[in-house]
Design a protein around this nucleic acid. Structure first.
Length: 656
RNA sequence: GGGCGCGUGGCGCAAUGGCAGCGCAGUUGACUUUUAAUCAAUUGGUUGCAGGUUCGAGUCCUGCCGCGCUCACCA
């Protein structure tokens, strides 16, 4: 309510020269981590650059011209020159290249710079005779800084040490960087390897200011190029399989298709509660009813859950559904698709992940969850057919840690036996198939019968579902899709009954989906996979946040200085004078904002620091002739016998 | 949500409870083929926020904020 951020946004002046107060120029921020919250306050380095910008402008230079010339990307210019060197009569190649200055060193009347565009880096050879004194002085006096974007024209050449360079005859500033990027210097060894000195690695700063991360860390830029290539490869592959790419609603009146808690939102005009989708499943399968043979969607899912190295609140999902195949058909497609994506991104289906060689080429190991448990833990869980007996057995073997005795049988097998004891061993791609029925409400039961009592029970209690694991990480989930509307209805009821107390596990009954199924849905196999995890695998990253450009982070907290800044703006806009002075004895806190004309003091506290400070505030109030208010990030209070909440608008009203 | 760890100039880091330091970057000057250029001089800090203990707190205690790891949660 105090925010006047729009003034800053629309203003022609930068915040720090906004004439808020003659006696109180905003001080440079002491920490860069504060910069991206609240009001921008320039650091010393930023002030220096701003001052340079003013000087350039005063000399008549355009800092941010609209029209730029460029004849070649940097890599093209270099390639052209190298080709000319080997087989052309002349190496006289004139180019105009553009890019960001990444290194600049002046040796008096000659200087060297490296500029970088997306394609690569080239050295500029800058001589006072070639550039002219005026232009050269911009470099020598560093009015043009590292990080600025420039346009350079000249003939390609080699310097004495052999580096391909642009013998620059014309240099033009095309965008001034007012905030310097973190400094990273590179040393190129004779063998072509590059050693970096200095780094920008604080993960919080990197994620919050991804633009700076990308600008200085080339390896980070490369990850997102690979990500784009991976997603393109998935589309190519699925299109090649004859599948149709579709888009389904993100805002849904009912969520479903997965066991997860949704985000909810509200449509004002329609007065309708909506959910952000947790999967695409139910909408995609409706399309098979409509007559498409195979559909897929790549898009964003939202799940209201904790975050981890492999979970982000929003993530990119791939789902496809194909008629007339079962889960074995889906397995075949899965194997070929991953191998194809790996080849497109890394050049081979054999990849390395965290030092482990992983071969994604088909065929993958396929094993039932029952056999996998038998193999790794040495017992057949079908010998313990109830949750009580299974728990007792796991407990007796010391395998029950973290398992709740009240869990369902299926959950014990999938979440505990598979999730806790098997999953992390699955480094090579492995398909784990045939899941307990109560964990798989959209999968068809396993086909077939058996005369043997135990085997019959097994078949009845399991479904044609598989998940696949690579590098110890679950990568996706698929099944022979349930298309019997009578069975599907029973599953909704089963889920509700089994997980009545567990809001996370229930899937709401979607009557329209059942309605679609009653029209007849072709038999089909379906597939879902977290694309971000696939990208982690193909780019050798251990955290999902490193394959997301903007991973979800908590918003940063305001500081008291931010509150004060907002208040100062509000006061300045109303033409009020104020001072930052009042001292309070016997405490480190000595500052309150003082409006002398009205004899009103305002103190700033974060709401969570307000409790217990009443006595202190009352002491401070003694120091004023008039009233003392305390402003927090949540409300404004008048300090009296108690803290009395004031409507901010009323407060300003009484002053004006 | 629980446990552990971290938060110090723009970036990377140091500092047995006792003067807040270093490298890079920045600023000023020198240098016409450098490349982590070099040389000389030099600026910059309320140590994440708030409270407490103490003659004295970056350091100890409490609360809060953020990030990381981990567990829980999680197709």
């Amino acid at each position: 309510m105090f925010s006047l951020g729009n003034i800053i946004k629309s203003g022609r002046l930068p915040a720090f020269i906004l004439p808020v107060s003659k006696t109180l120029p905003p001080k440079p921020a002491s920490s860069g981590r504060r910069r991206d919250r609240g009001m921008w306050q320039p650091t010393k380095l930023e002030l220096e650059r701003w001052e340079k910008a003013q000087r350039l402008q005063a000399k008549g230079y355009e800092l941010y011209p609209a029209r730029i010339e460029r004849t070649h990307r940097i890599a093209e210019a270099i390639a052209l020159f190298l080709r000319a060197e080997t087989d052309a009569a002349t190496t006289d190649i004139g180019v105009t290249v553009t890019g960001r200055i990444r290194r600049l060193n002046s040796k008096g009347k000659v200087s060297f710079a490296h500029i970088e565009d997306e394609s690569g880096r080239v050295q500029l050879f800058l001589r006072i005779n070639a550039l002219g004194e005026e232009s050269y002085e911009l470099i020598r006096r560093k009015l043009i800084d590292v990080d600025d974007f420039v346009q350079a024209s000249g003939a390609m050449m080699r310097t004495r040490t052999g580096e391909v360079s642009v013998n620059t005859s014309e240099l033009r500033l095309i965008s001034k960087a007012l905030t310097p990027l973190p400094v990273i210097k590179e040393q190129r060894r004779a063998d072509g390897s590059v050693i970096e000195y200095g780094e920008f690695k604080d993960s919080e700063s990197r994620y919050r200011q991804r633009y700076a991360d990308l600008a200085v860390n080339k390896s980070v830029r490369e990850i997102f190029v690979k990500r784009a290539r991976a997603i393109k490869a998935l589309r190519e592959f699925l299109d090649g399989e004859g599948m149709l790419e579709v888009e389904t609603p993100i805002l849904q009146p009912l969520y479903g298709g997965a066991a997860a808690r949704p985000f909810s939102t509200h449509h004002n005009q329609l007065r309708q509660d909506l959910y952000l989708r947790i999967s695409f499943e139910l909408y995609l399968k409706r399309l098979l009813v409509g007559g498409y043979d195979a559909v897929y969607e790549i898009g964003r899912d939202f799940r209201n859950e904790g975050v981890s190295y492999k979970h982000n609140t929003e993530f990119t999902m791939l789902e496809f559904y194909k008629a007339y195949i079962d889960y074995k058909g889906v397995m075949d497609i899965t194997e070929r698709m991953f191998a194809y994506a790996a080849e497109q991104v890394t050049g081979s289906a054999r990849i390395t992940y965290q030092g482990a060689a992983i071969n994604l080429a088909p065929p993958w190991k396929r094993v039932s969850i029952r056999d996998a448990a038998q193999e790794l833990l040495g017992f057949d869980y079908m010998d313990y057919p109830t949750s009580e007996t299974l728990y007792a057995h796991l407990d007796s073997r010391g395998l029950a840690e973290g398992l709740a005795p009240g869990d369902t049988w299926g959950r014990m097998i999938v979440e505990h036996i598979l999730g806790k004891h098997i999953e992390r061993h699955l480094i090579q791609p492995t398909i784990i198939k045939d899941y307990p029925r109560d964990m798989s409400p959209f999968a068809k039961g396993i086909q077939g019968t058996s005369a043997d009592e135990k085997e019959r029970r097994y078949l009845e209690s399991h479904t044609e579902r598989f998940e696949f694991f690579i590098a110890g990480m679950e990568m996706g989930n698929a099944f022979t899709e349930l298309n019997d509307p009578r069975d599907q209805q029973a599953r909704f009821v089963d889920m509700k009954r089994l997980y009545a107390d567990d809001a996370d596990e229930t899937t709401p009954l979607d009557e329209d989906y059942l309605n679609a199924m009653r029209y007849g849905m072709p038999p089909n196999g379906g597939f879902g996979s977290g694309v971000d995890r696939m990208v982690m695998l193909l780019t050798d990253q251990t955290s999902i946040r490193d394959v997301l450009l903007y991973p979800h982070l908590r918003s940063q907290q305001l500081t008291e200085a931010d509150l004060r800044g907002q208040f100062m703006l509000d006061a300045a806009v109303r033409g009020m004078e104020y001072r930052l002075d009042h001292q309070m004895e016997g405490s480190k806190r000595q500052i309150a904002l003082y409006l002398p004309a009205r004899e009103i003091g305002v103190e700033f506290r974060l709401a969570n620091a307000l409790e217990g400070s009443l006595a202190q505030l009352q002491n401070l109030r003694q120091a004023f002739e008039g009233d003392l208010y305390v402003m927090t990030d949540e409300a404004l209070y008048r300090v009296d016998e108690d803290l009395i909440e004031i409507v901010a608008a009323d407060f300003w009203q009484t002053l004006t």
